[in-house]
């Protein structure tokens, strides 16, 4: 094999963190949440883990999780900065 073959390395956050540009963040109300997992199913970024915690370093704030939550347990709150 050629020595200097240009290959990229699989990396979490390969396109940086989203915190600096995201305008809304999902906030879960644990009282309303019934742990159905719909939000994690539909998150395009896999930013919700199996314990249903949102990884705000990599969440893009698209709002899909809030729209798809059958319990309306997620609100999209504007980022303050």
């Amino acid at each position: 094999m050629r020595k200097r073959l240009a290959t990229s390395k699989p990396t979490k956050g390969s396109s940086g963190k989203t915190g600096s540009w995201r305008t809304f963040r999902p906030v879960v109300d644990p009282e309303k949440c019934n742990a159905c997992g719909m939000c994690a199913l539909y998150c395009p970024e896999a930013a919700i883990d199996e314990d249903l915690r949102v990884d705000v370093d990599f969440c893009k704030g698209c709002g899909i999780c809030a729209t798809e939550c059958p319990k309306k347990a997620i609100t999209m709150e504007r980022e303050k900065r």
Binding site: P10, T11, K12, G13, S14, S15, G16, K17, T18, R22, Y42, C43, P44, E45, A46, A47, D55, D57, F58, K60, G61, C62, G63, I64
Partner: peptide, 16 residues
């Protein structure tokens, strides 16, 4: 296998 934070648009269904 798609690691967190791609450079796709927010809400991109292709990523999903």
């Amino acid at each position: 296998y798609v690691l967190k934070c791609t450079s796709g648009c927010a809400g991109c269904s292709s990523t999903l």
